[in-house]
Write a protein that binds this DNA or RNA. Structure first.
Lengths: 350, 350
DNA sequence: GATTAGCACTCACCACTTCCGAGTGCCAAC
DNA sequence: GTTGGCACTCGGAAGTGGTGAGTGCTAATC
């Protein structure tokens, strides 16, 4: 069932032409644009074959062929060659990313922005997964009676904080003691190994009456857990409206509706990432095409993600969502470049 | 140029019908739906008059009339009567707002969400304008050599923080002294009266060598200034695609494109707010209709905002953007209710 | 002077038709 | 396996006519 050489070329040509023109491509125009050394009838036979194998399909009887999801899949897996960016393209991307941002979150945002600008598609980034990072510092600051700020400094230089409610009569000094104890005992532990019990044990040798303690500990614990929460940043949703692929209002609405539920998208990205990690297959990028994407309204999209790193144990994702009728090679090389730059800049921060 | 009574009723009826049906309304259907005690010919004369005055217009020669921006303006200014919400509507809104959120930012977000859900339109909120709030606490926490976290506690219970870079050899203790000095001298001052000079003066009596100080002070100062920065939160952009008013892809794209530039929208809201404040005219809500809105692509929208309060001196805005062909009365009463609830909940927080 | 009935006119919209051409499958010949 | 030829398909553009809701205007009436 391996495709012979010419059939591969035909499929590739169909994808290329369709991406470029957004029109079903027929045997004749294929001959005109590419110099196959055979007649259109031969190509017709090849195309019939490709259709039987599920790589291409007809929108209606008397039209040319368009790639199916499977066709795109074959294309990205073994047909396309990734080209390199021109110096100018590289410059544009770099200009957007570097600059004076010196906080990781800002940096990641700017990379996401750059990615959307460079591709013209929706781009996204997931905040770093901090489960594997560990506590470096913990401070509890009294704000006013009954209210305190828990500040966590994690490895990889991430700072998180959260306002929590505490019993009114707890003093500044008690808080200081408490945070010191927790800090001392939990430093170095990965976040995902910290449980309520660990926190409780860590606080044992303070002399604060335990009923009071309980609430604070619980708040401290949730603050730690919340630091681990994933957040997603999406940009450029409206750009999808520019593509004829979504010119039907219904499609556009479904797509943007789904994208507006950022929690759902975040969940999907996370799931994809986990799947890829556990299956051990780790390309530098991941692609989902059309129906492979289980999010509603993304049937005509492709979803490409990559992983960035912050320190040794912490990573997150950046990604692009565009019409599946996209120039994969260019998009991938752009995303790869953004990722590379982002990694470099993140390294500088630590 | 005052409209006589019947003409007012005609205009009102035209707006009501057009909002309900999205179809140009003609003299005959007007007679059918409302019981004017006159013939269609009379209404035709009235309508010709209204058109001459600029309240209504024809999309093309042989069609009915639709309200012009001016017509809507007249309608909201003096024709419509604001109706009250049903118990059920109130409940739905309340359910979304109250709940367990106990941080102001979260609360405001949830109100915004609720507003979008209730109206079916885009909703937005501006973070509180903190210029008028004052410093209650300031702490500088060392994170690691060269890096510190500036934590500001402002009146109205707002907590802001920022990671800043500091000279490597500054110690924890020095930082503590410094923040104490600044805190002591600036507490009670409104944010907009704090300048770099004030900060410098406040730090005078610490014994830290001044060249070192300069950089930290500058960072502290920018941290304070940044706390004052406005941020905007927009929700439900995709919902606009559901309205036939934006069924043309071009319009939809312009609209969503503009809305995606949140800085621009924020600037506009701020400008509107300032204008209203300085002109002294302070309704409980503000409306901009169609061309009155200077943002690109919002010609077919109306933009309604209201002000929420946090403590005595601090306020922000919530708002709705929908098609100008909207049921103003319902939208306004919903927004009013959300605002009321939000104010109540914010009060509870302090 | 305001209101009304009547009438000729306008024009978007819909359904219907026609026509064109790019594309197809298939077959017989090379 | 490749090719030329041919009948067939069908979406889309362009044209057509009828319909109906709407208009403005005029002359008669209250």
């Amino acid at each position: 069932m391996e495709l012979d050489d010419r059939k591969k070329r035909v499929l590739q040509a169909i994808v290329d032409d369709y991406v470029a023109t957004n029109e079903p491509v027929g045997s004749k125009s294929l001959i005109e644009r590419h110099n196959f050394q055979v007649s259109s009838a031969t190509l017709r036979n090849d195309m019939a074959e490709l259709e039987k194998l599920g790589f291409i399909e007809k929108p209606h009887t008397s039209a040319g062929r368009i790639p199916s999801d499977r066709g795109y899949r074959e294309y990205v897996d073994s047909l396309m060659k990734i080209d390199t960016l021109t110096a100018k393209e590289q410059e544009e991307i770099e200009a957007n990313i570097s600059g004076t941002v010196d906080e990781a979150a800002e940096l990641i945002k700017s990379a996401t922005h750059s990615l959307s600008e460079a591709t013209g598609f929706v781009s996204l980034s997931m905040s770093p997964r901090l489960r594997k990072s560990f506590l470096k510092q913990m401070k509890i600051l009294m704000i006013e009676p009954g209210k305190a700020l828990v500040v966590l400094v994690l490895s990889a230089g991430v700072v998180k904080d959260k306002v929590v409610r505490i019993p009114n009569y707890l003093t500044d000094e008690q808080m200081f003691k408490l945070s010191g104890a927790i800090e001392k005992n939990l430093t170095g532990k990965p976040l995902d190994e910290i449980t309520f019990v660990t926190v409780e044990t860590a606080a044992k040798d303070t002399e604060i009456p335990s009923p009071l303690l309980k609430q604070v500990l619980y708040e401290a614990y949730t603050a730690i857990k919340q630091a681990d929460q994933l957040s997603i940043y999406l940009e450029g949703e409206h750009k999808m409206l520019a593509y004829p692929d979504f010119s039907s209002l219904g499609r556009a609405r479904d797509l943007l509706g789904t994208l507006s539920d950022s929690g759902m998208v975040a969940g999907y990205v996370n799931e994809m990432e986990n799947l890829a990690t556990s299956s051990g297959k780790k390309d530098s990028y991941m692609i989902r095409i059309g129906q492979e994407i289980t999010l509603e309204g993304l049937d005509d999209c492709s979803f490409i993600t990559a992983t960035y790193n912050m320190g040794d144990t912490v990573s997150g994702n950046i990604g692009v969502i565009g019409p599946k009728r996209m120039d994969y090679s260019r998009v991938i090389s752009k995303m790869d470049f953004v990722k590379k730059k982002l990694n470099e800049e993140l390294k500088k921060l630590t």
